[in-house]
């Protein structure tokens, strides 16, 4: 059995006017030591998905249906106190906005120590500090900076410190939500290499959420493309890159410029226009139909079906035969 199994996960937000579906019937599973990338434009529901796994949705968000099984535990029905023990100890998270992920009035070291000592109350402070020092070595921050305040760190250091904290309790799964978006390209690359190396070394499962398909391609074994709350294409990295099937995936790929030219894009087309949140998410029909250059009458009348291209490569599109 896989480490993490997500079945039919549907997440919704209550707003003043309506209940909006943010993630619609998401299915995937993840083995120990493997990594999956979730790609999509902002607002497509990818962060929501990550938050739902840790049960950290905003107060108006809720899981409508579906199951999340992690190491045999049904995460969605776990009592709160047991869920608190799963968080960070088993599933850690690297946040989208590392700039603001640190409490500005507490020392960084204290915040990492807090994570360690919450999950291991027996550890002495000296031992815990020692662990932090090792982690800092791993992410290459000088140990004398441990007890600085967040405003004394640079952006890249904050991000690396977050990674150090994510590793502090040696979790089985790390959810990295746009961990490098706010950084410049050089630092971004360093951090990505770091994440990749650590993931491999410690045999951690990784869910990597990003809007940048190039970044995901560099880190993950598998890729899932998400559009308006639905996974529209999922497969191994090479498959999705070499034979992108869904028109949206192709649009995404063509808007991403490869530097090393490893992947050749076959179907050049104009970059994908952003989805308009004002339009209601049609429940059953393909969400991309209004922008899709290949949309046929069938797309407008029938909901799309999952097709298997290969046993590991699937796509949700009516055009594909």
């Amino acid at each position: 059995m896989a480490l993490l199994e997500v079945e039919n996960l549907t997440i919704a937000y209550k707003t003043r006017r309506e209940t909006a579906i943010a993630a619609d019937r998401v299915n995937f599973s993840l083995e120990r030591g493997r990594s999956v990338g979730i790609v999509g434009e902002s607002g497509c529901g990818k962060t929501t998905l990550g938050m739902a796994l840790l049960r950290l949705l905003p107060s108006n968000g809720f899981v409508k249906k579906g199951r999340v099984t992690f190491d045999g535990m049904d995460l969605l029905s776990l009592p709160d106190t047991r869920m608190q023990r799963v968080r960070w100890k088993r599933i850690a998270m690297i946040f989208q906005a590392a700039m603001n992920a640190w409490n500005p009035v507490q020392r960084i070291g204290d915040q990492i120590l807090e994570a360690i000592r919450t999950h291991d109350p027996k550890i002495t402070k000296a031992e815990a500090v020692k662990q932090v020092e090792q982690l800092y070595e791993l992410v290459e921050i000088p140990a004398d900076r441990i007890f600085d305040f967040p405003h004394q760190y640079s952006g890249g250091m904050k991000q690396r410190a977050i990674i150090a904290m994510a590793l502090a309790c040696s979790p089985d799964l790390i959810i990295a939500d746009e961990p490098t978006t706010a950084l410049d390209v050089i630092v971004q690359d360093q951090i990505l290499q770091k994440i990749k190396a650590i993931q491999k070394e410690k045999n951690i499962a990784l869910i990597f959420i990003s809007h940048d398909i190039g970044v995901v391609a560099g880190v993950c074994h598998e890729i899932m493309v998400m559009y308006r709350g639905k996974i529209v294409e999922a497969g191994r990295r090479e498959e999705v890159f070499e034979v992108p099937v869904h028109p949206y995936t192709r649009a995404l790929l063509s808007s991403y410029l490869t530097i090393d030219g490893v992947f050749e894009i076959r179907d050049k087309q104009s970059p994908a226009p952003p989805c308009t949140p004002a339009e209601p998410l049609s429940k059953e029909l393909c969400g991309y139909v209004h922008l899709c250059p290949h949309a046929s009458e069938a797309c407008r009348s029938r909901p799309p079906q999952w097709r298997e291209i290969t046993p590991t490569h699937k796509v949700l599109c009516s055009l594909c035969r």
Partner: peptide, 8 residues
């Protein structure tokens, strides 16, 4: 200050 939180 409105009662709805941001999406995502």
């Amino acid at each position: 200050l409105r009662k709805e939180e941001n999406f995502e």
